[in-house]
């Protein structure tokens, strides 16, 4: 009953936000639309990270590798004459396919080894993009002529679609058997395998899904900015932003990454104008505060209140 109530609030909130997002281009100027577009991108990326790292506990420091691959694939396909939507679609597909071998290789690694391998993977991506000049034009980057590009509205709705589908994907998986198995892997991988969970297949599937979203987002991003170079898309700073947003909002939850992305993007926008360098330092401080004092993220504040309000809350039967 209480669960239903929470679901109703969630759904209502979701529809409200969607309504605002869908109609925003009607009354917002290009500046705000751009801001929202970036917010949608961060929500999509944060949810993708949430899917692999929040649910399975495999901390990825290199999801931007897939973002970069998607961005380059999208830009190059666009130049090759594909319509923008097909370029995005294929960019996402390439990221997904790439995730299969990479997933099998990296997900054998545990804890710090996985984190570092993923960090290395992003760097390998950046280096390949720099050195494979024939394909990627190297450090000069790729400029996309305006006549090739979709309109701001198209990009806006593409990113909105990505943010929405990433969120729905997480919400869907969270409630399903698949999500349960992923969470079991996070808790105790060996025990999960012992009770019949094929951990390899599950991890690789989650990894693939979590590569698909950054792949698509990268392609849309390339079309939105109209220029990419190796360090702007294989950017560790972007990976860190997704992690901070998820953690700040609440890891492994559906609303956490949205909340986190919203608050961090808002703060960034507020601080950016006044203190360009200090805003990132502020992000660092925020990170420390969350790690030390709020390990469950902002969302845990709401949860805690809800728990206390529940008359029949069964909190812990024994020490």
């Amino acid at each position: 009953m209480l669960n239903n109530n929470r679901r109703r609030v969630s759904l209502g909130l979701g529809f409200g936000l969607m309504l605002i997002a869908m109609t925003a281009p009607l009354y917002m100027n290009a500046y705000y639309q751009s801001f929202l577009l970036q917010l949608f991108m961060m929500v999509a990326l944060a949810q993708a990270w949430n899917l692999i790292s929040g649910m399975t506990g495999y901390v990825s420091f290199g999801h931007t590798a897939f973002f970069g691959v998607g961005a380059y694939a999208g830009a190059l396909l666009l130049l090759a004459g594909f319509p923008w939507w097909l370029a995005v679609f294929k960019g996402a597909g390439i990221a997904l396919l790439l995730a299969v071998p990479l997933g099998f290789l990296t997900l054998r690694l545990r804890g710090p080894y996985f984190a570092i391998a993923m960090l290395g993977l992003n760097e390998v991506g950046r280096i390949i993009a720099t050195l494979w000049v024939d394909l990627t034009r190297g450090g000069d980057g790729i400029s996309l002529a305006p006549k090739l590009l979709p309109s701001l509205h198209s990009n806006y709705f593409s990113m909105l679609f990505l943010a929405l589908s990433a969120t729905l994907l997480v919400a869907f998986i969270h409630r399903r058997r698949f999500g349960l198995e992923l969470r079991a892997i996070r808790e105790d991988e060996e025990a999960a395998e012992m009770v019949g969970v094929n951990t390899t297949v599950n991890k690789v599937m989650a990894f693939m899904l979590s590569a698909l979203i950054p792949g698509a987002a990268g392609a849309v991003y390339a079309m939105y900015t109209s220029y990419i170079d190796p360090s702007s898309v294989f950017a560790p700073a972007l990976n860190i932003q997704m992690i901070v947003m998820v953690l700040f909002g609440g890891t492994g939850t559906v609303w956490g990454p949205i909340l986190g992305a919203g608050i961090v993007m808002f703060l960034r926008e507020m601080l950016w104008a006044q203190f360009p360098a200090a805003h990132l330092a502020a992000l660092g401080v925020l990170l420390l505060i969350v790690v030390l004092y709020l390990p469950g993220g902002i969302i845990s504040l709401f949860r805690a209140r809800q728990q206390r309000a529940r008359p029949d809350a069964r909190t812990g039967a024994a020490p």
Binding site: L180, D188, A192, V195, G196
Partner: peptide, 15 residues
Amino acid sequence: RVFPELTVLENLIVA
């Protein structure tokens, strides 16, 4: 080796 953050019910269902 109970899954610490899963509920008892979830612990059973996953198996």
